[in-house]
Design a binder for these strands. Sequence first.
DNA 1: CTTATGACTATGA
DNA 2: TTCATAGCCATAA
Length: 103
Amino acid sequence: MDSFFEQVYEVVRQIPEGRVASYGQVARLVGAPRKARFVGFAMHASPGMGGGIPCHRVVFKDGSLATGFAFGGPNIQKEMLLDEGISFRDETHVDMEACRWEA
DNA sequence: CTTATGACTATGA
DNA sequence: TTCATAGCCATAA
């Protein structure tokens, strides 16, 4: 199954704990900087942590979460990120400047 | 071929 | 800073 999704999963899987990456960032790593939307769609269809896909570490470029489409609420993802050591500048934005994943 | 839709991003108010 | 709009690419109808 070498589909676009698998490439995204492979990259997302490499995101270490306490780090976050934007959709566009992952998209660029897979060689598709314009397909950021599909990266998000891949996350939606991803098996989640059970499949080794920490989709909660993938956030918007601003550091905001996928409000309305997260695991049951952006609050959940926020808790997960906090649990991994991610810093939040406010209720809806992650401290990207400090937790930005560096490939 | 033309529209519509989408876990996005950039730009402008 | 937050909200709104436009542009982007891939898939479906």
